[in-house]
Simulated assay, not measured.
Amino acid sequence: MPFFMVYGSKAVLPTDLDYGAPRVKAYNEQGAKTSLEDAMDQLDEARNIALLRSAKYQQALRRYHSCHVWGRAFNVKDLVLRLVQSNKNRHKLSLSWEGPYIIVEVLYPGTYKLKFIDDKVFTNA
Protein backbone atom coordinates (compact mmCIF):
# COMPACT_ATOMS: atom_id res chain seq x y z
CA MET A 1 0.00 0.00 0.00
CA PRO A 2 1.46 3.40 -0.91
CA PHE A 3 2.77 5.66 1.85
CA PHE A 4 0.24 8.33 0.94
CA MET A 5 -2.69 6.01 1.55
CA VAL A 6 -1.42 4.99 4.98
CA TYR A 7 -0.22 8.33 6.36
CA GLY A 8 -2.15 10.85 4.28
CA SER A 9 0.95 12.63 2.92
CA LYS A 10 3.96 11.98 0.75
CA ALA A 11 7.07 10.52 2.36
CA VAL A 12 9.99 12.78 3.27
CA LEU A 13 13.30 10.97 3.00
CA PRO A 14 16.19 11.66 5.37
CA THR A 15 18.29 12.79 2.43
CA ASP A 16 15.62 15.39 1.62
CA LEU A 17 16.09 16.82 5.11
CA ASP A 18 19.90 16.69 4.96
CA TYR A 19 20.28 18.33 1.57
CA GLY A 20 17.32 20.70 1.78
CA ALA A 21 15.05 19.47 -0.95
CA PRO A 22 12.78 22.17 -2.45
CA ARG A 23 9.73 20.59 -0.84
CA VAL A 24 11.38 20.78 2.59
CA LYS A 25 12.48 24.39 2.08
CA ALA A 26 9.01 25.43 0.90
CA TYR A 27 7.31 23.92 3.98
CA ASN A 28 4.85 26.29 5.60
CA GLU A 29 2.96 25.40 8.79
CA GLN A 30 -0.22 27.24 7.78
CA GLY A 31 -0.15 25.82 4.28
CA ALA A 32 0.45 22.36 5.71
CA LYS A 33 -2.93 22.36 7.46
CA THR A 34 -4.82 23.26 4.30
CA SER A 35 -2.85 20.78 2.25
CA LEU A 36 -3.58 18.11 4.88
CA GLU A 37 -7.30 18.77 4.53
CA ASP A 38 -6.96 18.55 0.75
CA ALA A 39 -4.97 15.36 1.11
CA MET A 40 -7.69 13.83 3.27
CA ASP A 41 -10.15 14.53 0.45
CA GLN A 42 -7.74 12.96 -2.01
CA LEU A 43 -7.26 9.96 0.25
CA ASP A 44 -10.79 8.68 -0.39
CA GLU A 45 -10.28 9.16 -4.10
CA ALA A 46 -6.93 7.33 -3.98
CA ARG A 47 -8.52 4.44 -2.10
CA ASN A 48 -11.28 4.20 -4.70
CA ILE A 49 -8.73 4.20 -7.51
CA ALA A 50 -6.72 1.46 -5.75
CA LEU A 51 -9.91 -0.58 -5.28
CA LEU A 52 -10.79 -0.24 -8.96
CA ARG A 53 -7.28 -1.23 -10.03
CA SER A 54 -7.40 -4.25 -7.74
CA ALA A 55 -10.76 -5.32 -9.16
CA LYS A 56 -9.45 -4.87 -12.71
CA TYR A 57 -6.38 -6.98 -11.89
CA GLN A 58 -8.55 -9.72 -10.34
CA GLN A 59 -10.76 -9.79 -13.43
CA ALA A 60 -7.75 -10.06 -15.73
CA LEU A 61 -6.32 -12.84 -13.57
CA ARG A 62 -9.64 -14.71 -13.60
CA ARG A 63 -9.90 -14.28 -17.39
CA TYR A 64 -6.34 -15.60 -17.89
CA HIS A 65 -7.01 -18.56 -15.63
CA SER A 66 -10.23 -19.52 -17.38
CA CYS A 67 -8.55 -19.30 -20.80
CA HIS A 68 -5.24 -21.01 -20.03
CA VAL A 69 -5.92 -23.49 -17.23
CA TRP A 70 -7.94 -26.51 -18.15
CA GLY A 71 -9.92 -28.43 -15.61
CA ARG A 72 -9.34 -32.13 -15.30
CA ALA A 73 -11.69 -34.74 -13.91
CA PHE A 74 -10.60 -38.19 -12.85
CA ASN A 75 -12.62 -41.37 -12.66
CA VAL A 76 -12.60 -44.35 -10.34
CA LYS A 77 -9.59 -46.66 -10.95
CA ASP A 78 -7.50 -43.88 -12.50
CA LEU A 79 -3.87 -43.73 -11.40
CA VAL A 80 -2.75 -40.38 -9.99
CA LEU A 81 0.19 -38.79 -8.20
CA ARG A 82 -0.33 -36.63 -5.11
CA LEU A 83 1.54 -33.42 -4.35
CA VAL A 84 3.50 -33.66 -1.10
CA GLN A 85 1.94 -31.11 1.27
CA SER A 86 4.44 -31.16 4.14
CA ASN A 87 7.96 -29.75 3.90
CA LYS A 88 9.06 -31.39 7.15
CA ASN A 89 12.35 -33.33 6.78
CA ARG A 90 12.58 -32.32 3.11
CA HIS A 91 15.19 -30.51 1.05
CA LYS A 92 15.24 -28.95 -2.40
CA LEU A 93 16.06 -32.24 -4.16
CA SER A 94 13.23 -34.18 -2.53
CA LEU A 95 10.48 -35.46 -4.76
CA SER A 96 7.48 -33.18 -4.84
CA TRP A 97 5.01 -35.90 -5.86
CA GLU A 98 4.20 -39.18 -4.17
CA GLY A 99 2.32 -42.20 -5.34
CA PRO A 100 1.02 -43.62 -7.54
CA TYR A 101 -2.42 -43.83 -5.98
CA ILE A 102 -5.61 -45.30 -7.32
CA ILE A 103 -8.87 -43.38 -7.11
CA VAL A 104 -11.31 -45.41 -5.07
CA GLU A 105 -14.20 -42.97 -4.91
CA VAL A 106 -15.15 -39.57 -6.33
CA LEU A 107 -16.54 -37.66 -3.33
CA TYR A 108 -17.49 -34.57 -5.33
CA PRO A 109 -15.89 -32.83 -8.32
CA GLY A 110 -12.23 -32.17 -7.55
CA THR A 111 -12.20 -34.32 -4.38
CA TYR A 112 -11.22 -37.96 -4.48
CA LYS A 113 -10.66 -40.79 -2.06
CA LEU A 114 -7.27 -42.35 -2.79
CA LYS A 115 -5.74 -45.70 -1.99
CA PHE A 116 -2.02 -46.37 -2.09
CA ILE A 117 -1.16 -49.01 -4.66
CA ASP A 118 0.53 -52.08 -3.23
CA ASP A 119 1.99 -54.36 -5.88
CA LYS A 120 0.32 -57.36 -4.28
CA VAL A 121 -3.15 -55.82 -4.12
CA PHE A 122 -3.28 -53.87 -7.38
CA THR A 123 -4.71 -55.69 -10.39
CA ASN A 124 -4.78 -54.02 -13.77
CA ALA A 125 -8.36 -54.21 -15.06
Rank of each mutant, 00 (worst) to 15 (best):
M1R: 14
P2H: 02
P2T: 08
P2N: 14
F4P: 00
V6E: 14
V6A: 14
S9K: 15
K10Y: 01
A11F: 04
A11C: 09
V12P: 05
L13G: 11
P14N: 06
D16N: 13
D16L: 06
D16V: 11
L17E: 07
L17S: 02
L17P: 04
Y19D: 10
G20W: 08
G20R: 04
P22Q: 08
P22F: 02
R23G: 05
K25Y: 00
N28A: 04
E29Y: 15
A32L: 01
A32Y: 00
K33G: 13
K33L: 13
T34W: 10
T34C: 14
S35D: 06
E37I: 05
E37H: 02
A39G: 15
Q42V: 07
D44K: 10
E45F: 14
A46G: 01
R47E: 05
R47F: 11
N48I: 00
I49F: 15
I49Y: 15
A50E: 03
A50D: 04
L51Y: 01
L51K: 02
L52R: 15
L52A: 11
A55E: 08
A55V: 04
K56Q: 05
K56W: 04
Y57I: 10
Y57H: 04
Y57K: 05
Y57W: 07
Q59P: 03
L61Q: 12
R63L: 09
R63D: 12
H65L: 06
H65I: 05
S66W: 08
S66K: 09
S66M: 03
S66D: 03
C67D: 08
H68L: 15
H68K: 12
V69R: 14
V69K: 14
V69S: 10
W70D: 09
G71F: 00
R72L: 15
R72T: 15
A73F: 05
F74V: 04
N75G: 12
D78R: 07
D78Y: 03
L79M: 10
L79S: 04
L79E: 11
V80F: 05
L81F: 07
L81K: 05
R82H: 09
L83H: 12
L83C: 12
V84Q: 15
V84H: 14
V84D: 09
Q85K: 06
S86V: 10
N87H: 14
K88P: 08
K88Q: 07
K88Y: 10
K88V: 13
N89R: 00
K92P: 03
K92F: 09
L93G: 01
S94G: 06
L95A: 15
E98P: 15
G99R: 07
Y101L: 09
I102R: 14
I102L: 12
I103M: 01
V104Y: 14
V104G: 05
V106W: 02
Y108W: 04
P109R: 12
G110R: 02
T111H: 03
T111F: 08
Y112C: 09
Y112D: 08
K113V: 03
K113D: 02
L114C: 01
F116H: 06
I117K: 13
D118R: 06
D118K: 04
D118M: 03
D118I: 02
D119Y: 13
K120P: 06
V121D: 13
V121G: 13
F122A: 03
F122V: 03
T123S: 10
